[in-house]
Simulated scan of single mutants.
Amino acid sequence: MILRIQTYGRAGLLGNPSDGYYGKTIALALKAFPVTVTIYESPEIHIAPNVEDNSDYPSLEAMVQEIDRFGYYGGIRLVKATCRQFFKHCQEHGIAIPERNFTLRYQSTVPQLVGLGGSSAICTAAFKALLSFYEIKSIPLEIMPTLCWQAEDELGINCGMQDRVIQIYNGLVYMNFEEKFFTAHRHGRYERLDPALLPPLYLAYDPNRAEFSGNYHKKLRVLYDAKKQDLSAAMREFADIAEQGRQALLDRNHALLATLINANFDLRCRVLPVSEMNARMVYQARKSGASAKFTGSGGAIIGTYDSEEMYDNLQRDLEEIGCAVVKVTVATD
Rank of each mutant, 00 (worst) to 15 (best):
R192K: 13
N170A: 12
L198W: 12
L197P: 01
N170W: 11
F177W: 05
Y202T: 00
F181D: 01
L197H: 04
N176S: 10
A196R: 15
P195M: 07
N170H: 15
A196I: 08
Y169V: 07
F177E: 00
V173K: 15
R186W: 07
L203V: 14
H185L: 01
E179Y: 04
V165F: 08
F182Y: 14
T183R: 10
R192G: 04
L201I: 06
N170L: 08
G188K: 08
A196G: 05
V165N: 05
F177K: 00
L201A: 02
F181E: 02
L197F: 08
P199E: 03
L193T: 14
P195K: 10
L201P: 06
D194A: 08
A196S: 14
R189I: 14
F182T: 01
V165L: 05
L198H: 09
Y190D: 00
L197M: 06
I166M: 13
D194C: 03
F181L: 00
H187M: 03
Q167T: 14
Y202C: 00
Y202D: 00
F177M: 00
P200I: 04
L197A: 01
L203N: 14
D194I: 03
E191D: 07
E179L: 05
K180E: 03
L193D: 09
N170Q: 15
P200W: 12
E179P: 03
N176C: 07
Y174V: 08
F182P: 00
Y202G: 00
L203M: 15
R186G: 02
E178Q: 10
R192F: 08
V165G: 09
A196E: 15
G188I: 00
G188S: 12
P195F: 08
Y169A: 01
P200M: 07
E179G: 04
G171K: 09
Y190G: 00
D194R: 10
L172H: 12
V165D: 01
F182I: 02
I168H: 15
G171Y: 06
L172R: 11
R192I: 06
L172N: 12
Q167I: 09
Y169N: 04
G171D: 09
P200S: 06
T183F: 02
G171Q: 08
I168Q: 15
V165Y: 07
V173L: 13
H187D: 02
E178I: 05
F181W: 01
E191I: 11
Y169Q: 09
D194W: 09
